[in-house]
Nucleic acid binder design. Structure first.
Lengths: 163, 163
DNA sequence: CAAACATTTCAGCCTTGGCTAACTTTAAGG
DNA sequence: CCTTAAAGTTAGCCAAGGCTGAAATGTTTG
């Protein structure tokens, strides 16, 4: 048997050489699982916010279409969001965000924009940047986000150039 | 009613101004959902690869400990991985990777390392970089990955400096 | 060899987030 | 006003990925 979980290497450079210490490793995976739980919610809320902003109203059909899921799925998710007090609506009427929902939407949107801008500043093509940003935004810590923002601003002083 | 899904804005800069065109938007969310399905699998496979590499064998207990989940969860996942022909083992014996599994592990590990190195090169602290890398690695396209690699190499010519 | 302990597996439960199908409500048109 | 289409809702199904608890198998040790 191998003496695992011994891990004296608490300050190793990280990956490839040796395994990260167990407790650190656990933290990484826990963070991913945690992000998992919130990211879909954030995506829905962010989308509702965008629809409200750009189309004046957020309807289930539009959400279903944009997300590429069925209306039933949207309906179920809206139940969830209502129970979380992020979304409100009267039956058969379009959706709106609560204060908490609006805050989340704004937060998400801001994060999304920073990541997207950062990727484009790096030289990633527009299409790819959008897809990657959508996936990455929920896994980027505030620390990294700040750095990304500074970076993007440095590289694109006035405004971003399209790809 | 609002004439949604009309979307003449196919070449808009992207986010914040107007909504992305619907078909583009669908693609983004589809990509995220798709990544979702594979990322856990990749994480498990990558971890098994790491354990094999650094400890000589991969046991359910160790996986459970490192992932921070129960052994039963690991067992169930191993069933899934076996059915996908990524992992093989004889009952009550430790696990090993099939050729496909090994390929996936290597691929994941490489991606992980690039993202991690990139984040550190950006100036993100070690702890944060690890957590973010774990989350980001499954959402970074090959295009972005290539750019990250070039970038990290530029900024850290010889070797990475610790934070 | 047998007991004690660690590990693996199995059975069964829960929640999420998809789906389809059937139904109700709203909106639009003749 | 009645019909029809579109949109929203509800019920019920499924797979994934967690969990606990109990049973089976391996390993170590007296």
């Amino acid at each position: 048997m191998i003496d695992s979980a011994d891990d004296p290497n608490t300050d190793n450079p990280g990956h490839g050489d040796v395994l990260p210490p167990t407790n650190q490793h656990v933290k990484q995976y826990a963070a991913v699982r945690n992000a998992h739980e919130t990211e879909l919610i954030e995506d829905y809320v962010e989308l509702i916010g965008d629809l409200l902003k750009h189309q004046g109203e957020a309807r289930s059909t539009d959400i279903a279409t944009r997300m590429g899921v069925s209306q039933a799925t949207v309906a179920k998710m809206m139940c969830r969001l209502k129970s979380l007090d992020l979304v409100a609506s009267k039956p058969y009427r379009s959706l709106f965000l609560t204060q908490a929902g609006e805050a989340m939407a704004e937060e998400s949107s801001k994060r999304h924009a920073i990541v997207l801008q950062f990727l484009r500043a790096l030289g990633v093509s527009d299409q790819t940047a959008r897809i990657d940003a959508e996936g990455m935004e929920h896994h980027v810590s505030q620390e990294t986000l700040d750095i990304m923002q500074r970076f993007a601003c440095q590289l694109t002083p006035g405004h971003q150039r399209e790809g």
